[in-house]
Amino acid sequence: MTDLSRYARQSVFNKIGADGQRKLAQSRVAIVGMGALGTVAASELARAGVGFLRLIDRDYVELTNLQRQMLFDEADAADGTPKAIAAAEHLRKINSAIILEPVVSDFNARNAETLTRDVDVVIDGTDNAAARYLINDVCRKLAKPWVYGGALGSVGAVMTFLPDGACFRCLFPDAQSGGESCATVGVLNMLTGVVASLQAADTLKILLNSPSLDRRYRTFDLWNNVFDAIEVAQNPDCPCCNGDYTHLNASAVDVPVSLCGRDAYQVAGRGAVDSDALAQRLRGIGNVKLNAFMLVFEGGGAGFTLFPDGRAIVKNVKSADAALSVYAEYIGG
């Protein structure tokens, strides 16, 4: 029998209790993305005693992550430790009684089912729409609950999707390609903390079958003090709800092409990008050169050339996954 005394301040809370605490110890959660949301949610759930956490991220810790990605430190950034590994190492020191499984990999249509099949809840810690549509597809297909979280600037959103009712594609039928990202418009760490904590709380409620689970689409603006929530109806024509898992069944996975040169990968992208608007945003954070054929960016340790059709050549990256990360962070998903 596992010793649950370390969770006394939680199990004494009457909505959890000793039975609830034991249930958490038997529970399994996958967190896709170990960034600002993923690290906070992982930290809270590890401390709360969720028995198994799969920590998925393809990226490496950088100095600019430390402002909001709560599990990492300067040594991780100096070493360029994979985020999944660094997160697991820190969490092991916090709770050695649970199982932590770091996965250093892109989350894609080829591995989505393998990485989610054996968990009870999936938490979205990603930063792009494509990944969320994929999580939505795989969770619908496997009838898994998942918890969406988004944060940009001071505006955040959270919604929990259960196997029944509205899905993410009912809420957002098409990818919103604002092209804005935390790299270009910034994000408050208080916001990502709030979003991730709400995601973790929802996860706990799902694992404990709590009737208090809020299934509404909740949004808030921490800077302008706006909190809102709306009901989302299931769309009868939603492809995903009708079993058409477009993103999961994609025949072509966007595998970056190694360019037979030095640490450069071509990422195909998902169609045309508004280079002028992107250049505008990127000018605040690095050097931008723009002409009719390409946008060249260098800054924040990243470098890429973006072409009008959406493809980009990402420079100075060690892996295909790292190239995808740079693309998602600076250009968008």
Binding site: L259, C260, G261, A264, Q266, A292, F293, M294, V296, T305, F307, P308, D309, R311, I313
Partner: peptide, 24 residues
């Protein structure tokens, strides 16, 4: 213009297939 960039422009803007890099 980096050779990889030139190849991407030829492909994307001019519909010309060419290869860039070290060619193994």
């Amino acid at each position: 213009v980096a050779p990889t960039d030139a190849a991407a422009i030829l492909d994307g803007s001019f519909d010309i297939a060419a290869r860039a890099g070290l060619h193994c």
